[in-house]
Design a protein around this nucleic acid. Sequence first.
DNA 1: CATGAATGAGCCTTCATTCAT
DNA 2: AATGAATGAAGGCTCATTCAT
Lengths: 243, 243, 243, 243
Amino acid sequence: MSSNQESDRARSRKGGEPPESESAPGGAGDDAAIESTADEDGRVTRARELRRERRDQIQQAAERVFASKGFHAASISDVIEAAGTSRGTFYLYFDGKRAIFDALLDELFGKLKACVRPVDLTAEARPLEQLRANVACAMKVVAENRDLTRILYRTGQGVDPEVDRKVAAFNAGVTELIRRALRGGMQIGIVRQLDDQLVAQCIYGSLKEIVFHSLEARVFDDKPLAHIVDEILRYNIEGLRGP
Amino acid sequence: MSSNQESDRARSRKGGEPPESESAPGGAGDDAAIESTADEDGRVTRARELRRERRDQIQQAAERVFASKGFHAASISDVIEAAGTSRGTFYLYFDGKRAIFDALLDELFGKLKACVRPVDLTAEARPLEQLRANVACAMKVVAENRDLTRILYRTGQGVDPEVDRKVAAFNAGVTELIRRALRGGMQIGIVRQLDDQLVAQCIYGSLKEIVFHSLEARVFDDKPLAHIVDEILRYNIEGLRGP
Amino acid sequence: MSSNQESDRARSRKGGEPPESESAPGGAGDDAAIESTADEDGRVTRARELRRERRDQIQQAAERVFASKGFHAASISDVIEAAGTSRGTFYLYFDGKRAIFDALLDELFGKLKACVRPVDLTAEARPLEQLRANVACAMKVVAENRDLTRILYRTGQGVDPEVDRKVAAFNAGVTELIRRALRGGMQIGIVRQLDDQLVAQCIYGSLKEIVFHSLEARVFDDKPLAHIVDEILRYNIEGLRGP
Amino acid sequence: MSSNQESDRARSRKGGEPPESESAPGGAGDDAAIESTADEDGRVTRARELRRERRDQIQQAAERVFASKGFHAASISDVIEAAGTSRGTFYLYFDGKRAIFDALLDELFGKLKACVRPVDLTAEARPLEQLRANVACAMKVVAENRDLTRILYRTGQGVDPEVDRKVAAFNAGVTELIRRALRGGMQIGIVRQLDDQLVAQCIYGSLKEIVFHSLEARVFDDKPLAHIVDEILRYNIEGLRGP
DNA sequence: CATGAATGAGCCTTCATTCAT
DNA sequence: AATGAATGAAGGCTCATTCAT
């Protein structure tokens, strides 16, 4: 029930820009149009900035709150208190608890997607270095967004069908990326024959575990990132077998 | 917070046996003590059985409910409706929502622990077969307890510090088991030199991902368990590298 | 959206009896079945009585509150305060504010319908007396349920489509009754030829106005009911025309 | 209660004219006073027109919104959206939701009062024709202000004590008018002896019912207005009695 | 032991109104 | 005069838990 109601006000602004003020109605003076336009543009731009700032302020507060208390235990009251805004303002910028969680998810997934590139397997392209770069970047993003990642990790999936779908889609996306790389590798012979679907999941799982565990245990503080990445890559490439 | 209050009645029984009927209450007849004792023993035993049955009935209902709606979305009302008991009875057997979740967790972890044995690495013991047996057993347990496992997977950790601790402890336990096996393997040379902590997590992660994903995607219906186990083992032992 | 949510608990009990306890489950003793049954029946009956009492208590409180503050200005808090119950209890018996309003409406309409009988126009039946009885009874009901009627009068229709429908249906029902009487009267010649639909509304309107106005102005305190009824009937039968 | 607070700005303007621009604000030039006065008069007049236009624009929007959603379900947001103005502007012209409702009420009552004239009972004046004209005019006003009338009908009285008072006053006014006509009629013998107060209410009620019902059922579309008026008059004058 | 009516803290959300720009 | 972001009081509702019977 409640997950369907979104305030019209918030929804209308949701994905996009504020209504742009549609120029002033009424009998405004017609002379000096240029300056007035410039003024207005400036004001509108400024207003848009303020909107974004406010929104970010709330979103960041939510990030902190969710990360420390968990999604379910956190209340809107916690968020607005942390953000230093009023209840009403919160609902001016977000449609509710689920919606702000969604926004946080989008942010994290966006950052992660931004740093992972499909691996080019041609010899000149040094695929191993690309892999290393991908993994290192992902871990850097995670390390830089510890709160955000913890939210995702700790919350699991029980929030909402929509959120579940989003998380599943992200996981599927990453797994698919890995699977394609595996297939390519098999074709040119640098990867042995294997069940690409299953192994892609294994790889993704090994990465996730390291990532999330690092987060909780603050491993990054103890071991150099390069070491971690190296170990993961060797584990995945060479397996465990002794010489 | 309200989730900390535990009814005195339920707490008193918490870790242990039912109150053993505490002798017959009220004005029980004092004559014919011997027969009455015999009777009483029978009655007590029967009572204990009933207790266990009742408890199981509720716990199984909770398992179904949590698995289908998720821990947070499920209400006590859902559970007692599914169990066919009354509200009061529920609280007679469990301290609350968190407590029954705890019990379910214990059950699952118990079953999993029961089937995993430390690997004996001596040559005669065929360590690979032991590994295969461990993994296969774990996957069988999971497949047989789909609901239970889904609860854990879907709920993540946000339930409660106590639950979080339990989950973390289980994870740590498994990882430690793997780590010891790795160390043993390194000592006798069948495992290459590696960061046992990190790689243990990698292995655990790869297993978990397969397990949980299988659960949702019903992979077990499509691929033979043996194939899955083989692929996992080869992945972990040989890695990805082509010939 | 919101008008659809009715708590399952309340809904399940809505139109009817409590679940009747479905007999005690578990291994209850099989002897002495008769007394135990008797006991249980007694207990169940008593429980049902208590339920009804509680419900009435709340409903009457709501009646007072709505009558004095109006539906929109009254809050659930007002009702439960007046009823001396807790918030939760309210929702145990009613699905919400609209639902209790509905119940009040049903009560009033039920009482009104109960006292109005179709008029038998045959000469022996003294139709005038029947009319008088109908009108007098309706006014008595209204006078005895001043609060209830005021609620309806003051609230108008803006509460809810469902309520609107109910009110409209009641009005239509009464008008239809009058229309039929008019038609019958025209057929046997004691009523002149007229547009039965329009005039039925006129009659209903004249009655309603008297009724509702009396309510506010406490006319019943000043003028004998018989006088009022007489005037209404003469007005409707003879019109205004002087001799 | 919040509905009592009225912004000082709006209150100051309340019953009357706009602030007449209170001389030109800002650093207006002080020289050329005469021309400037002429200019200013023009400007002021123009400004006043604009004010009125703006106000009407909002009021008409409110009329539409209240009529379609009902007073309570309609929000200021709905009104300003329909009016194409901003929130702030709304409060510049009206003191709030209740105030604009008040204004609408005044408009409707004004129009109705404007078309009803006391009936001159002298023989030459053809009192029946006057009655017919009164009723016909009222029904025309209602038909032409369907939205406005529906608002009143649907909203009942629960809005506000002030509004209730206004509605009651209007009703009382009309009833009084009818009563006086009845008394006059009784004096010159064209109306039979009756309880003028009660019968005045009956008459008013019969009219109201027709009017409001017509509104919802769009009777005006099916039956000619003249027929309706004729039926009402005959009903009131001749009553129901057959020949 | 079993029951289920009662509780009330606490949640999410809305919206009339204000005020700085 | 116009704007619209900000406010926060208030409302409806849920649900884990208790306790008298």
